[in-house]
Structure formats: structure tokens, C-alpha cells
Computed example of a mutant assay.
Amino acid sequence: MRVLIAPDKFAGTLTAVEAAQAMATGWLEQAPDDEVVTVPMSDGGPGFVDVLSAALGGELLAVTVTGSLGEPTPATVLLHEGTAYVETSQACGLDLVPPERRDPERATTYGVGELVAAALEAGARRLVLGLGGSGTNDAGAGLLAALGATAQPDGVLASGGAALAEVTALDLAPARARLAGVEILAASDVDNPLLGLRGATNVFGPQKGVAEERRVTLDAALERFADLADRSLADAKGAGAAGGLGYALSLLGGTRVPGIETISAAVGLPDRARAADLVLTGEGSFDFQSAGGKVVSGVASVAGEAIRPCLVLAGQVLVGIREMRTMGVESGYSLVDLVGRERALGAPRDSLVELARRVARTWSR
């Protein structure tokens, strides 16, 4: 039997690569004669570069960039056949900053611009940026500054979202010239606009630490910036991704693409699914959000197009069979139900190995 294993990360416990390896180990312990292929997945957030590196190979370029609060931060860019893959959360990720130090009004995306600059200097003419997991809310102004954009007062673009209320003049021409002729793709599962009730500040700001009483003020600061840059692009789908990085990339001529579809195409997932008899995917929490452009629903869609059954192995399963079938999932299996919450969190790899072994008893020939 040919089994394709294509999970997302199990947030906080296992990377996508680790999850795929654990699932493969458990399956082969039960069914050693089966042919198992692992293809770790991502929707554009943390793990984006690791997943693509595991699937594509290529060269990893090590770079030290400016973190969201100004500290030196190590990051990598994946170079493969003229394309640079950039994981924006490596420079401005929420998880890089301890909860007590998070300051989304001051956090900057300057380091993301430095990653882009490093990719250009390495010769890349096509950029694919994975957006997700950011701790910033600066409309991508920091990225623009790192690529040469200027504003008045001097330095305001790299000072975080709240500082954008002070902008009196803006010149994007140097950044646009630097990216001339370069294809830019912003890979994200988020389609929110930059501003308003569905915008970056109001929807994603709270999880980054934006206080309720500051949302209107911070949204107004981004609106002032957009008025000077290009207000029409602020309403585009995905402009609010990663605290507005999607908007900044659109100012440079970038195009928003669904993260899961981009990665599926890059790793050849449709062909791999057609070559398999069964598809397994997984994530930390299989819930109602899984249907919104996440890895699980994306892999299930690919499996459905290949007319192959798809199973989900997750930390916890919070949807019923009807919701699963709507997403194209045949069955869902929970670590918590099998080993309990304490062991699922304390020994996630061993628990996932055991779950995969149990599932193989039912599904392997």
C-alpha cells in the first residue's frame, strides 16, 4: 500500500517535519511492507522554509537581520532554481518575543526587508514570501524602509505601526526600483484587508497584544500611511496579512496567492497524491478554522481531486463527521482521546507514533 503523509506543524509541540517523521514511524511499525512518502506542509507561516527545503533541496542562505524589536535575529532564505523562499516570521514572528516584551505598536518588519535584500543580492529574480505568525502591525512599512523607501520624519517607517501616524511625506520609488523586474508572490491563508473592522489591527491585533482601547488609534495610523502610499490597495484581499505585510508587498507589485496552494504546487503534492492509495495529514487542533485555507483542508482538497481517501491525525479533533466530510476528510483521530492531554503535550512525538500505529491497523491492507 502506498501512503502519502503531508501534515502541518503541531503548534507548540512538533514541526511539520517532525510530525511527518513520527507519523511515518508509527505507520511502518504496524505495516512495514507499505510504501510511505513524507511531504511536510505549511500554509506560509512558521516552518515555511523548513518544509520547502525538505521537499525541494536548494541552498539555505544564513542571514542575521533586525528582529521586530531591534535585536539581531538569525534567519535563513531558501534559494532554489532562481526563486528565493522567505519565511517572514523568522524575522518578525510573534513566537520570537516573550509575552511580557511584546509591543505590536512598536514592532517592525524591517528584518523582513533585509531578508528580501539578501535574496536579491544572491541573484533571485522571483520571491515567494510566506506570511503568517507575525508579531507586527506596521503595514509592512519596515520592509519598505529596508528596501530603500523614505519618509518624513526620518526613520518613521522602521519605528512600528503607531509611529505611522506621524508620517507627512512618503517616497516608495527607491524600493520599487530595487524590485523592478522581480516577481513577488505573497503566500498567505489570510484574505483580510488592511483597514477597518476586518483589517489587520482589529482582527489580528488582539492576539499580538494590541489593547482594545488602542485599536482605533493604531488602525488610524495605518490608514494615514495608506493614504500617502495607495489607499486603493488597502482593500485588496490579503492586504492585512502579517500585520499589513501583504499591503506593502502589493505596493511593490506583489501578488497574493493562497499559501497552501503555493506549497502544494512547489512540492508536487497533486502528483504525489495520485501516486498514493491513502493520504494522511494532521495539525495540532482540527477545528472549524481548519476549513479556512489551512493545511488540512488544502491537503484534503488535493486528495479529493486525486480520488484518494484522506485521514487527519491531530492533537485534538473538535469537528464532527459532517464537518469532516465537507472538508473532504474521511476520518479524524485525536492524540488527546488516545493518550490524554498531559501525555499528548508532554510526549507529542511518541504519542503521534502510537496514534499512527493504531490508524494503520484499521487502514493498511
Rank of each mutant, 00 (worst) to 15 (best):
T73E: 01
S250W: 02
S301V: 03
T13C: 04
A119Y: 07
V86H: 12
V299D: 07
Q316I: 01
L60V: 01
V77D: 04
C310Q: 10
D95Q: 14
G155S: 00
G304F: 05
Q90N: 12
G315N: 11
V302T: 08
A24L: 11
D95A: 14
T255R: 15
R358N: 14
G47T: 04
R198V: 00
V86I: 15
D189S: 14
V317I: 13
E330V: 13
G47Y: 00
G135T: 00
V17P: 13
R176T: 05
V86K: 07
L96V: 06
P270M: 04
R274E: 10
Y333P: 05
G332N: 05
A145K: 06
R272Y: 06
Q30S: 12
M41N: 06
Q152P: 06
T15V: 04
G148K: 09
T217C: 12
A314K: 12
V3F: 12
D43G: 07
E223P: 05
G284N: 00
A275G: 02
I260Y: 11
M327L: 04
G113D: 05
F286I: 03
V257W: 08
L245E: 14
D219L: 13
T64I: 03
D154M: 08
A119L: 06
A303H: 10
S159I: 03
V112Q: 10
I263M: 09
H80V: 02
Y85N: 02
A54D: 06
G67I: 00
D138T: 08
D34T: 10
S89Q: 01
G130M: 04
L245S: 11
S188R: 12
R198I: 03
G142W: 01
V299F: 05
M41D: 08
E35P: 03
G111C: 10
V17N: 14
L61D: 07
T76M: 03
L352K: 12
A303F: 04
T150D: 07
D171H: 13
L129C: 14
P40T: 06
H80N: 02
A300W: 06
V267Y: 04
G268H: 12
P348W: 02
R102N: 01
D271W: 11
S250E: 09
V336E: 15
V336M: 14
L115R: 13
Y247H: 05
V39A: 12
K294M: 08
R106M: 03
Y333W: 15
P7K: 05
G161K: 10
R101V: 00
G181P: 12
